[in-house]
Protein backbone atom coordinates (compact mmCIF):
# COMPACT_ATOMS: atom_id res chain seq x y z
CA UNK A 1 0.00 0.00 0.00
CA UNK A 2 1.18 3.48 -0.86
CA UNK A 3 2.02 5.67 2.08
CA UNK A 4 0.75 9.22 2.15
CA UNK A 5 2.34 12.21 3.81
CA UNK A 6 0.16 14.23 6.21
CA UNK A 7 -0.07 17.06 3.68
CA UNK A 8 -1.19 14.64 0.96
CA UNK A 9 -3.87 13.32 3.30
CA UNK A 10 -5.09 16.85 4.00
CA UNK A 11 -5.37 17.54 0.28
CA UNK A 12 -7.14 14.22 -0.40
CA UNK A 13 -9.58 14.48 2.49
CA UNK A 14 -10.33 18.13 1.88
CA UNK A 15 -10.86 18.37 -1.85
CA UNK A 16 -12.73 15.39 -3.24
CA UNK A 17 -15.75 17.64 -3.32
CA UNK A 18 -16.21 21.39 -3.28
CA UNK A 19 -13.19 22.14 -5.47
CA UNK A 20 -12.96 25.95 -5.82
CA UNK A 21 -14.59 27.13 -9.04
CA UNK A 22 -12.44 30.24 -9.32
CA UNK A 23 -9.72 31.53 -11.65
CA UNK A 24 -6.90 30.24 -9.47
CA UNK A 25 -8.33 27.17 -7.71
CA UNK A 26 -5.00 25.59 -6.78
CA UNK A 27 -3.84 28.88 -5.25
CA UNK A 28 -7.03 29.01 -3.18
CA UNK A 29 -6.49 25.45 -1.95
CA UNK A 30 -2.86 26.34 -1.19
CA UNK A 31 -3.99 29.35 0.87
CA UNK A 32 -6.36 27.22 2.92
CA UNK A 33 -3.64 24.62 3.49
CA UNK A 34 -1.00 27.24 4.27
CA UNK A 35 1.38 26.04 1.57
CA UNK A 36 2.44 27.42 -1.81
CA UNK A 37 0.49 26.89 -5.01
CA UNK A 38 3.51 25.07 -6.45
CA UNK A 39 3.41 22.61 -3.52
CA UNK A 40 -0.24 21.79 -4.25
CA UNK A 41 0.51 21.29 -7.96
CA UNK A 42 3.57 19.15 -7.19
CA UNK A 43 1.55 16.92 -4.84
CA UNK A 44 -1.19 16.45 -7.44
CA UNK A 45 1.38 15.50 -10.10
CA UNK A 46 2.98 13.05 -7.70
CA UNK A 47 -0.37 11.47 -6.71
CA UNK A 48 -1.17 11.09 -10.38
CA UNK A 49 2.18 9.47 -11.17
CA UNK A 50 1.67 7.02 -8.30
CA UNK A 51 -1.73 5.99 -9.67
CA UNK A 52 -3.63 7.37 -6.66
CA UNK A 53 -5.22 10.35 -8.40
CA UNK A 54 -7.26 9.60 -11.52
CA UNK A 55 -8.06 13.23 -12.24
CA UNK A 56 -9.20 16.52 -10.80
CA UNK A 57 -12.63 16.87 -12.24
CA UNK A 58 -16.32 16.13 -12.32
CA UNK A 59 -18.19 13.01 -11.29
CA UNK A 60 -21.34 13.01 -13.36
CA UNK A 61 -24.54 11.62 -11.86
CA UNK A 62 -25.73 8.57 -13.83
CA UNK A 63 -28.45 9.10 -16.42
CA UNK A 64 -28.58 12.87 -16.21
CA UNK A 65 -26.65 13.23 -19.45
CA UNK A 66 -26.84 10.39 -21.92
CA UNK A 67 -27.58 6.87 -20.71
CA UNK A 68 -25.69 4.16 -18.89
CA UNK A 69 -26.08 0.69 -17.51
CA UNK A 70 -24.28 -1.84 -15.41
CA UNK A 71 -23.77 -5.01 -17.43
CA UNK A 72 -22.86 -8.52 -16.27
CA UNK A 73 -21.54 -11.48 -18.25
CA UNK A 74 -20.75 -15.10 -17.42
CA UNK A 75 -17.46 -16.03 -19.07
CA UNK A 76 -15.49 -19.27 -19.03
CA UNK A 77 -12.26 -18.68 -17.05
CA UNK A 78 -10.04 -19.47 -20.05
CA UNK A 79 -11.75 -16.75 -22.11
CA UNK A 80 -12.09 -14.13 -19.39
CA UNK A 81 -8.97 -12.13 -20.19
CA UNK A 82 -9.59 -12.07 -23.91
CA UNK A 83 -13.20 -10.93 -23.48
CA UNK A 84 -12.26 -8.42 -20.75
CA UNK A 85 -9.56 -6.90 -22.98
CA UNK A 86 -12.00 -6.57 -25.84
CA UNK A 87 -14.57 -4.89 -23.58
CA UNK A 88 -11.93 -2.49 -22.21
CA UNK A 89 -11.15 -1.47 -25.79
CA UNK A 90 -14.67 -0.06 -26.19
CA UNK A 91 -14.44 3.67 -25.37
CA UNK A 92 -17.96 3.76 -23.85
CA UNK A 93 -16.95 1.22 -21.19
CA UNK A 94 -15.77 3.05 -18.10
CA UNK A 95 -15.55 0.42 -15.37
CA UNK A 96 -14.70 -3.22 -15.85
CA UNK A 97 -14.17 -5.62 -12.95
CA UNK A 98 -13.86 -9.32 -12.44
CA UNK A 99 -16.10 -10.40 -9.55
CA UNK A 100 -16.60 -13.59 -7.56
CA UNK A 101 -19.68 -15.09 -9.16
CA UNK A 102 -20.78 -17.20 -12.10
CA UNK A 103 -21.52 -13.79 -13.58
CA UNK A 104 -17.86 -12.89 -13.37
CA UNK A 105 -17.41 -9.78 -15.51
CA UNK A 106 -19.13 -6.54 -14.50
CA UNK A 107 -18.81 -3.32 -16.43
CA UNK A 108 -20.55 0.01 -17.00
CA UNK A 109 -21.47 1.30 -20.44
CA UNK A 110 -22.09 5.04 -20.77
CA UNK A 111 -23.30 6.38 -24.10
CA UNK A 112 -25.30 9.22 -25.58
CA UNK A 113 -28.63 7.39 -25.53
CA UNK A 114 -30.34 4.16 -24.42
CA UNK A 115 -30.32 2.94 -28.01
CA UNK A 116 -26.57 3.48 -28.26
CA UNK A 117 -26.09 1.45 -25.04
CA UNK A 118 -28.16 -1.34 -26.65
CA UNK A 119 -26.13 -1.12 -29.87
CA UNK A 120 -22.91 -1.55 -27.91
CA UNK A 121 -24.27 -4.58 -26.04
CA UNK A 122 -25.41 -6.07 -29.31
CA UNK A 123 -21.93 -5.56 -30.74
CA UNK A 124 -20.38 -7.25 -27.68
CA UNK A 125 -22.73 -10.23 -27.99
CA UNK A 126 -21.92 -10.61 -31.68
CA UNK A 127 -18.21 -10.34 -31.12
CA UNK A 128 -18.01 -12.73 -28.16
CA UNK A 129 -20.92 -15.08 -28.80
CA UNK A 130 -21.89 -14.54 -25.15
CA UNK A 131 -24.97 -13.02 -23.54
CA UNK A 132 -24.90 -9.66 -21.82
CA UNK A 133 -27.19 -8.96 -18.89
CA UNK A 134 -28.22 -5.34 -18.70
CA UNK A 135 -28.94 -4.05 -15.18
CA UNK A 136 -29.95 -0.40 -15.58
CA UNK A 137 -30.21 1.96 -12.64
CA UNK A 138 -33.70 2.58 -11.34
CA UNK A 139 -32.97 4.72 -8.33
CA UNK A 140 -29.85 6.05 -6.64
CA UNK A 141 -30.05 6.19 -2.84
CA UNK A 142 -26.47 7.12 -2.12
CA UNK A 143 -23.88 8.42 -4.53
CA UNK A 144 -20.14 8.63 -4.45
CA UNK A 145 -19.07 11.69 -2.49
CA UNK A 146 -15.48 10.64 -1.99
CA UNK A 147 -13.97 8.90 1.01
CA UNK A 148 -11.83 9.71 4.00
CA UNK A 149 -8.42 8.15 4.41
Amino acid sequence: MTLLTPIEKTLINGWQNGFPLTSNPYAQIADEMNVSEQTVLDILVSLKQRGILTRVGAVVRPNTIGASSLVAMAIEPDRLEEVADYICSIPQVNHNYERENKLNLWFVVTASSKSEVDEILHKIENHTGLKTIKLPLEKAFHIDLGFNI
Binding site: M1, T2, L4, L11, I12, W15, Q16, N17, G18, F19, L21, L44, L47, R50, G51, I52, L53, T54, R55, V56, G57, A58, V59, V60, R61, T64, I65, I143, D144, L145, G146, F147, I149
Partner: peptide, 18 residues
Amino acid sequence: QGIISRFGLVLQHRPLGY
Protein backbone atom coordinates in the same frame (compact mmCIF):
# COMPACT_ATOMS: atom_id res chain seq x y z
CA GLN B 1 -28.42 21.09 -10.95
CA GLY B 2 -26.93 17.86 -9.67
CA ILE B 3 -25.62 16.78 -13.07
CA ILE B 4 -22.19 16.99 -11.52
CA SER B 5 -22.56 15.15 -8.21
CA ARG B 6 -19.14 16.23 -7.04
CA PHE B 7 -16.16 18.16 -8.38
CA GLY B 8 -12.69 17.57 -7.02
CA LEU B 9 -10.02 14.91 -6.63
CA VAL B 10 -11.12 11.58 -8.11
CA LEU B 11 -9.06 8.78 -6.60
CA GLN B 12 -8.34 5.11 -7.11
CA HIS B 13 -9.17 3.02 -4.06
CA ARG B 14 -6.70 0.24 -4.75
CA PRO B 15 -3.32 2.03 -4.55
CA LEU B 16 -4.47 3.41 -1.19
CA GLY B 17 -4.86 -0.09 0.12
CA TYR B 18 -8.62 -0.38 -0.39
